[in-house]
């Protein structure tokens, strides 16, 4: 059991595995994305209330969805960092945090673009948008703390603690923001509680969600590989891959 964990945590082993999976991840995600886009943008029926402007959900919903689940994934990796001190878990957190922040930003941006034709204004202090804004703040905090601590191990553990504190707070924040929203503005625009979407709409949406997840997997692998190469830059296997230094030199393989 321990041996397996150790192997799983080995950056070198992960680097090799990731290289094998990545083309598949990228290929399938691009395929699904094109299919989902064409289906959603060209073939899905227009909304009876919003016309064609609703079609932005084919981007908005997957990004918002993934932005939130990326934070939860980071929290799981944070637990692994704290309990088993696995290096790879921290590599994942560091690699994924900026991706999560960008996804959150995209969700906010597409939300604003969607808001203009729907509500007549770019921004509205709606419960969901506000929660996403706070999620963006949380991502920024994680990235800032990770950058501020120079020592790799301390940085890993400090960020893990922060992510865990954040993930405990997310439901509280969500609940409080929803409560705040009902207190301050009686629900006038409730677009989300429409009668259920017809399958012609939600099937392409599902395809897009799946595509984005695969794309996320690809970009996470790519960024993790980069991070691993940087961290292990002094080990012989990295020198051998990169063709830098003299591969015979190092006796210390941090494996």
């Amino acid at each position: 059991m321990w041996q397996f964990f150790h192997k799983l945590g080995s950056p070198k082993w992960f680097y090799g595995i990731a290289s094998r999976f990545m083309p598949w991840l990228l290929g399938s995600s691009l395929l699904l994305m094109v299919a989902g886009m064409v289906w959603g943008l060209a073939f899905a029926p227009p909304d009876y209330l919003q016309g064609n402007s609703y079609r932005i959900i084919f981007i908005h919903v997957p990004t918002a969805f993934l932005a939130q689940s990326a934070y939860v994934m980071m929290a799981v990796a944070g637990i692994v960092t704290l309990v088993w001190r696995m290096k790879l878990a921290d590599v994942f957190v560091k690699a994924v945090a900026p991706v999560g922040a960008v996804l959150t930003f995209l969700a906010l941006f597409t939300g604003a673009v969607w808001g203009k034709p729907t509500w007549g204004t770019w921004w509205i202090w709606d419960a969901r948008l506000t929660s996403m804004l706070i999620l963006l703040f949380l991502y920024c905090g994680v990235i800032a703390l990770g950058n501020a601590i120079a020592d790799e191990k301390s940085s890993a553990r400090a960020v893990a603690v922060l992510v865990l504190v954040g993930v405990v707070n997310i439901p509280i924040i969500k609940y409080s923001v929803e409560w705040w929203n009902t207190l301050h503005q009686p629900a006038t625009f409730k677009l989300t509680e429409k009668p259920s979407m017809p399958p012609e709409m939600w099937v392409p949406l599902l395809v897009m969600v799946l595509a984005l997840y695969l794309f996320f997997g690809w970009i996470a692998c790519l960024r993790m590989q980069n991070e691993i190469l940087y961290r292990e830059r002094r080990s012989s296997w990295v020198k051998a891959i990169m063709g830098t230094g003299n591969a015979r030199a190092s006796a210390k393989v941090t494996d």
Binding site: I134, F137, L138, C140, G141, A144, L145, A148, I149, A158, V161, L162, V165, G166, N169, I172, I173, Y175, S176, V177, W179, W180
Partner: peptide, 27 residues
């Protein structure tokens, strides 16, 4: 505690903590 001993700890501290303060503020 997380920002202890870091340079520019003050602003970083605010960055980390303000999002977590939001529920308290709201209630």
């Amino acid at each position: 505690a997380l920002t202890l001993g870091l340079r520019s700890a003050g602003i970083l501290l605010s960055l980390l903590i303000i999002p977590l303060y939001i529920p308290v503020l709201i209630f």
